[in-house]
């Protein structure tokens, strides 16, 4: 293969793998921010919290990191339900979520991150599952399992979630809760309970994404920062409440970043993605893959 072409194809493929990791990190936000209208700026910090929990559990019990993440998911669900309860009590109920709710999550983000620094120190942590060093080669194209396994698991999880939201009664109630809480009340469903349940799911997803993240790369307590802009950008580009849009946007983001990095150097890659986001915000606020509001 022509080396330029090989570079491009490799960049696209590793971009898709990176993108599925982004999708994992953004899917929870598509629920909280996209569907429930809760601007959880602490979501990336929760992902990192998940990664640290996975490091501890998989290291302590000698389990596979992705399996550990699944075992930890109920705990993260509880954490999310707790955060939502506080958020609802202090902000949503008072109609005060815009500025102060945002500040609340900003504060939560810092408490999580600094808490991690205080417990684990500022050093990087990583896990080393058995498949991490295996890479498949197809001609000039590399497929490292370290990227492929978490990426594929992430996409499978999101697929299962999308199916759940589409087919079950509760799932459809979640999709409807932000648009029409009154309609839910008429069906004798408490919108607050639905939102608490859904927010729990979004935080559980953050925990799972943390498991995927730590398989791919070493993490430190501040790793979440590089994701804040990206995950919000992805959810907005994906059309907010759409999981499929979120996945498409995440893949596009990953490919755009990686191709730029391959050809112009990694220091330019954020500019491409965020430049794209600014353009989307300025000219098509309803998202690239969303429907007109």
């Amino acid at each position: 293969m022509d080396p330029e072409l090989a570079l491009l194809v490799n960049a696209i493929i590793s971009g898709l793998l990176l993108g599925s990791l982004y999708a994992a990190a953004a899917a929870g936000l598509a629920i909280s921010f996209g569907m429930l209208d809760i601007v959880n700026i602490a979501h990336p910090a929760l992902v990192v919290l998940g990664a640290f929990a996975v490091v501890v559990v998989s290291g302590g019990l000698g389990l596979d990191p992705l399996l550990s993440a699944v075992l930890l998911a109920p705990g993260f669900w509880l954490l999310g339900a707790g955060i939502y309860t506080a958020y609802h009590h202090f902000f949503e109920r008072r109609g005060d979520q815009a500025l102060h709710g945002l500040a609340f999550f900003f504060g939560v983000m810092f408490i999580i991150e600094v808490g991690l620094v205080m417990v684990f120190g500022a050093d990087q942590r990583y896990v080393d599952p058995s498949y991490a060093s295996i890479t498949y080669y197809f001609g000039d194209i590399d497929l490292p399992l370290r990227m492929l396994v978490p990426g594929a698991s992430a996409l499978a999880t999101i697929g299962a979630l999308a199916l759940y939201l589409r087919t079950t009664f509760t799932g459809r109630a979640i999709a409807a809760v932000a648009q029409d809480p009154e309609a839910l009340r008429l069906l004798a469903i408490d919108p607050v309970r639905i939102k608490r349940f859904a927010f729990g799911i979004s935080v559980a997803l953050a925990g799972l994404a943390g498991g995927a993240l730590v398989v791919v790369q070493p993490i430190d307590p501040w790793s979440g920062h590089v994701f804040i802009g990206r995950v919000f950008a992805i959810v907005i580009m994906g059309g907010m409440a759409s999981l499929s849009g979120c996945v498409l946007a995440a893949l596009a983001f990953g490919v755009a970043e990686n191709v730029t990095a391959a050809f112009y150097g990694p220091s330019w890659s954020p500019a491409v993605a965020f430049g794209a986001l600014l353009l989307v915000l300025a000219f098509r606020p309803q998202g690239l893959f969303g429907r007109a509001a």
Binding site: A86, F90, A103, F104, G107, F110
Partner: peptide, 14 residues
């Protein structure tokens, strides 16, 4: 930063 976070959460809520 921990101080900022805690104070911010307390003030935003209370």
């Amino acid at each position: 930063l921990m101080i900022v976070g805690v104070v911010l959460v307390i003030f935003a809520a209370a």
